[in-house]
């Protein structure tokens, strides 16, 4: 009998923390929580200090996440949204769903500094066209060379309506071509193999050998150098400069776990989070890491110039620019 009681006690002890523990639901993009992404490690690290359970909800890509929030509104189950970028923070802010992060931003190391009270950056990186040196010994040296190049050499792009890299490329085009962007899109069109909904699909297609170029990040080759020990995939340096992406997270104001959410945002700037970024998300950390960056990061392309629209500029024009793209690449 005693034995039985003891068993029950044990069971109860096991069950108790699970039942008492709160769950922190975080929306993020797919590649972040894949088994090779930073998600699993960050979950484990945060759960060590929070007495909570982290639940990742994967959405195709960053822009799709914003659309999901628009549909869900205040009914959203997210406590935190992680993986928007500065191009869509203004549009996200207009949803009036986000609470100020309340974190200390003084230690942030993002280009141009940081002053946003709602969204907190966790990493950044310049976009770049990544190419396969075995199929393309001579990469384009500028966006203009990409646009006017040999249509037989294809590139895989992401859809700006669902993907932040996709939106990044669209804005890069706009930053370089201005009023003539529609024409540039038309010229580029025959080079586009396909436009995928998210970065994961595009990069998967690329590494599978479907095309010699993909739109990704300056930091992408670091992954191949570190993990695959190969220099086969390289980022092309463009003379017009490179568009910058700063990835951010924000807490949902209506969340019953707002305090926990804020503590996650604060945790985001500590080594427990930041250390995972360089070798799993393959981006440049936005704050201090315990160890220096892997050697491969020293061998990456350094953009000659950083291109970036302000969040307000993007918010005002995003719809019109997307329609311009749709009409230019459509049949």
């Amino acid at each position: 009998m005693k034995k039985l009681l003891a068993t029950f006690a044990c069971l109860a002890a096991l069950a108790a923390p699970a039942a008492a523990q709160t769950t922190l639901t975080i929306y993020t993009y797919e590649s972040f929580v894949s088994e090779w992404g930073p998600g699993p490690a960050i979950k484990a690290n945060f759960e060590k200090v929070c007495a909570c359970t982290v639940e990742w909800v994967a959405v195709t890509d960053g822009v799709a996440m914003l659309n999901r929030l628009k549909i869900e509104g205040t009914a959203t189950k997210a406590d935190i949204v992680l993986g928007l970028d500065t191009n869509i923070t203004e549009e996200a802010r207009e949803l009036k769903l986000f609470a100020p992060h309340g974190a200390d931003t003084s230690k942030l190391k993002v280009p141009g500094g940081w002053s946003d009270a709602d969204f907190l950056p966790y990493d950044y990186g310049h976009f770049a066209v990544v190419y396969d040196t075995e199929k393309m010994p001579v990469p384009p040296k500028s966006l203009d060379e990409l646009v006017n190049g040999d249509p037989a050499q294809k590139i895989i792009l992401e859809d700006p309506r669902s993907s932040t890299p996709g939106l990044g490329f669209l804005l890069w085009m706009k930053a370089v071509y201005g009023d003539k962007t529609a024409d540039a899109w038309k010229k580029l069109k025959p080079r586009i193999l396909t436009t995928t909904p998210g970065w994961s699909e595009a990069y998967g297609l690329f590494t599978k050998g479907e095309a010699p170029m993909v739109f990704s990040y300056v930091t992408s080759p670091a992954y191949h150098i570190e993990a695959d020990k190969t220099e086969r995939y390289q980022a092309a340096s463009f003379t017009e400069g490179h568009y910058l992406q700063i990835e951010v997270a924000g807490a949902i104001a209506a969340s019953p776990e707002l305090d926990l959410a804020r503590s996650f945002l604060a945790f985001m700037l500590t080594p427990g989070f930041q250390d995972t970024i360089p070798t799993t998300n393959w981006m440049i950390p936005a704050a201090e890491t315990a160890a220096p960056l892997p050697a491969a990061f020293g061998r990456l392309v350094t953009p000659s110039k950083t291109l970036l629209f302000t969040p307000t500029e993007v918010n005002t024009n995003r719809r019109a620019w997307i329609d311009e793209w749709l009409n230019a690449v459509g049949n």
């Binding site: 659309n67 628009k70 549909i71 859809d159 309506r161 669902s162 909904p197 719809r319």
Partner: peptide, 9 residues
């Protein structure tokens, strides 16, 4: 599907 899921238009 896209205009709802992607553009929310």
């Amino acid at each position: 599907y896209q205009s709802l899921r992607m553009d929310f238009d």
